[in-house]
Computed example of a mutant assay.
Amino acid sequence: MQTDGPLSKVYFDPYFEMEAVKILPGEFYVTQQNLLLVTVLGSCVAACIRDKSLGLGGITHFMLPFEQNNIELIDSSIRYGSHALEVLINELLKLGASRENLEAKVFGGGDVLSAEGSHIIGERNAAFLLNYLEAENITLVSQSLLGSYPQKVYFFPSSGRVLVKKLKRLNNNTIFDREALYFEKLLDVQVAGNIELFG
């Protein structure tokens, strides 16, 4: 999902009494409108980045491909994570954001998947995200990373406000199913090996 559309995932949130957009694994959204951006994170991470002076911002929700101690796959993982963040930042810049005014709040990276080796996925995602922001000189305002619970993130780009709810009890397996499916897709991406994400 991209800048202010398509709006198929826009819904009215009765609690906050405003329009909201649901962001799924592998998606991003950037807006200048007064919208609420919502995502649920397990092992994935999300970066909420905004221009603090203009009140425009966006969110990206991603997971690094699994490394399997293979140099080529590690390179693919780095390129994938960088691509997810670069797309978000470039969309913000297209709307008039200034790189020096960008600030970030980051979330997720929990130890919640049951797949083999998944205990390190969240840690890798979180470490990559923090290192990327530092390398790009984007101010980190706050973070809620790692832990054993999924997180539901409510991001208000116009004000920069973020609310986080730790999901200690889930009525269904939706988040796990979504991340497991996304995880499988990432494994398929790696098999291609020489895929160019920056095109």
Rank of each mutant, 00 (worst) to 15 (best):
I23E: 01
E19N: 15
T3A: 07
I74L: 15
L88Q: 04
P157K: 06
N131F: 03
Q143R: 15
T3V: 13
R169K: 12
F66H: 03
Y154E: 08
Y154R: 12
F62A: 04
V45G: 05
E196A: 15
Q2F: 15
Y149M: 03
K166A: 11
L36E: 04
Q190D: 12
R124T: 04
S8N: 10
P150K: 11
R178C: 13
I195T: 15
R124K: 11
M18S: 00
D111H: 07
L7R: 08
E179Q: 02
E67I: 15
I138N: 00
G193E: 15
L129D: 05
F12W: 13
H119N: 14
G57Y: 09
S8C: 08
K168T: 12
D4H: 05
T39K: 03
E86A: 00
S144K: 09
A126W: 01
G199M: 14
Y29F: 13
A127I: 13
V45D: 00
G122E: 01
N90W: 02
F176V: 06
N69D: 14
E72M: 07
A20Y: 06
F28Q: 09
L140P: 01
G117P: 05
K9A: 09
E19Y: 13
T39M: 00
V10H: 03
K152W: 03
L181D: 14
A46N: 04
F66Y: 11
V87Q: 12
L36V: 01
E19Q: 12
V191Q: 11
C48H: 01
Y132G: 03
L129A: 09
I71K: 14
F16H: 14
F66T: 10
T139Y: 00
Y29S: 08
E72H: 06
Y149R: 10
S53F: 00
G109N: 12
F156Y: 12
A180D: 10
K9W: 02
A135D: 10
V141N: 06
G193W: 09
S98M: 14
L197D: 12
L85V: 02
V106L: 15
K22S: 06
E27Q: 06
D13A: 10
L187A: 13
A46K: 00
I195A: 14
I175D: 08
T139I: 11
E27K: 03
V153P: 02
Y132C: 04
D111S: 05
I120N: 14
V45Q: 09
T139L: 11
K94T: 05
I49Y: 04
N171D: 13
H119Q: 14
L7D: 11
A127D: 11
R169I: 05
L129Y: 01
V45S: 05
T60V: 12
N34Y: 06
